[in-house]
Design a binder for these strands. Structure first.
Length: 459
DNA sequence: GTAGCCTTGATG
DNA sequence: CATCAAGGCTAC
């Protein structure tokens, strides 16, 4: 492993790539983008782009196009509401706890990687290497072909705008809904969302709404305990490190969830009463974003990179898992609107369980689905690879749980035991979605439905 | 207008 | 009292 973890972890401004000077307006940015964002919002500046509104923003070119720079600021998750209307100096705002949490997560990630870096020099990782050799190190050294766009089995694709705005927003609905039981017809979605929203610190120049929705209201994060230091003697399997590396930046994900909800709210407000989407329709939009997010994640995941075709139908349980994860981070007001109970698992590190569960389950499903699909479609070339990867992920999880939780020797099996429940949950969600689709309640061009259709025709 | 440095003040 | 993320100042 010749990764330079230090350089990988060194924070760069998500807008221009310059050196980060601290948390500013919602996330880690450089001093110049902080100043630029502040000037723009405070002075209500309006820019125009001389090109096609997709200028590259980097350290050397950031001055060229303020329009695209500001757009990028918003897209990466900088918060308008963190700019103060009264220009009051000093003090703290509502984002303080969010920054603290993000710092803790980053520190934990760093500690994990650093500790394993030291260990790996001394002891080579334990890896199964079946024939042919699809072991992790091989996968790492083989760059994925550029055209590994997932085959989503549908022509539905997000617009560039949507893709840019919500590329990694990961919010969907993990609803323990009894099959074929419709939600209450007039469940109030947005009016109450707005009532829970935090008040902007700045008057709204950029949206028509008076409030901003803060999906990640920092005060209401369920209590986890963070492990700031890696337990002594912990050997982190390289696979786990790779998953940690490809995890999306949590703060940015949260910011995008917030932006996505605000966007939906704005759209909803601008609709006439007749055109207004039902709660379920809104949920479908949010769920679509989760799917796109999963696709993005899969494309960056070492295993899926090697697969020419990614079976998105297998992402349904994945979606449920990701939602479980994200709803543990979301404030209660969002959960209450989606009939989801936040999951409180203070003894479980969400980062690790998320990584493991998602990877394992999706790979397991991949094996399962491919076995079925291979009856009809010739995808045999991937089969040994997928099975090998599945075994490796399993082995890594086992190794990790034994080292990280020696006091809970059955942790591995406990995690595996969760899968049937999750699968059952996703099946219920599928059935419910079908039912809603048949009763004409799913919005047009919904990716979830396209996916379900693809799944049911090929299996 | 930009961006580096300075001042401020709530928070723990 | 230290921290640090707000806004302010100012040379360029």
């Amino acid at each position: 492993m010749d990764y330079s973890y230090d350089t990988d972890l060194e924070e760069l401004c998500p807008v221009c790539g310059d050196k980060v000077s601290g948390y500013h307006y919602g996330l880690l940015t450089c001093e110049s983008c902080k100043g630029f964002f502040k000037r723009t919002v405070q002075n209500n500046k309006r820019y125009t782009c001389a090109e096609s509104q997709d200028c590259n923003i980097d350290k050397t070119q950031r001055k060229r196009c303020p329009f695209c720079r500001f757009q990028k600021c918003l897209n990466v998750g900088m918060r308008l509401e963190a700019v103060r209307a009264d220009r009051m100096r000093g003090g703290r705002n509502k984002f303080g706890p969010m920054y603290k949490r993000d710092r803790a997560l980053k520190q934990q990630k760093k500690a994990l990687i650093r500790a394993s870096g030291l260990k790996m020099e001394a002891t080579p990782p334990l890896m199964s290497s079946p024939q042919p050799d699809y072991s992790f190190s091989t996968a790492l050294s083989t760059p994925a072909p550029k055209n590994t766009h997932p085959n989503i089995g549908t022509s539905v694709a997000p617009t560039d705008y949507e893709r840019n705005l919500y590329a990694s927003s990961s919010l969907s609905l993990s609803i323990p809904i009894p099959a074929h039981t419709p939600l209450p017809a007039q469940y109030p979605a947005y009016p109450t969302l707005a009532s829970h929203a935090i008040k902007s610190e700045y008057p709204d120049h950029y949206t028509s709404s008076e409030h901003y929705t803060c999906a990640s209201s920092p005060e209401s994060v369920p209590g986890y305990t963070y492990v700031d230091q890696t337990p002594p003697g912990l050997t982190v399997p390289p696979l786990v490190l790779e998953f940690v590396r490809c995890e999306q930046d949590e703060l940015q994900v949260q910011s995008k969830i917030s932006a996505h909800l605000a966007h939906l709210q704005q759209e909803q407000n601008s609709r006439s009463a007749a055109e207004r989407l039902s709660t379920f329709g809104l949920m479908c939009h949010i769920a679509d974003q989760t799917l796109f997010s999963i696709v993005e994640w899969a494309r960056s995941c070492i295993f899926f990179k090697e697969l020419k075709v990614i079976l998105i139908p297998s992402s349904l349980p994945l979606s449920v898992l990701m939602d479980c994860f994200h709803f543990t981070l979301l404030p209660e007001q969002v959960c209450s609107h989606t009939h989801v109970t936040p999951i409180h698992t203070p003894d479980v590190n969400p980062l690790k369980t998320n990584i493991y569960s998602v990877c394992l389950d999706s790979l397991k499903d991949e094996v399962h689905s491919q076995k079925k699909i291979n009856k009809n479609v010739k995808l045999l070339e991937n089969q040994p690879y997928v099975e090998s990867m599945y075994e490796q992920v399993n082995a890594a999880l086992l190794e990790y749980t034994l080292c990280a939780y020696p006091q809970f020797p059955d942790r591995f099996s406990q995690i595996l035991l969760r899968f049937p429940e999750l699968r059952a949950l996703s099946t219920q969600a599928e059935d419910y979605l079908c039912y809603k689709h048949l009763s004409g309640e799913v919005p047009c061009n919904n990716l979830l439905i396209e996916m379900l259709h693809a799944k049911r025709t090929c299996i």
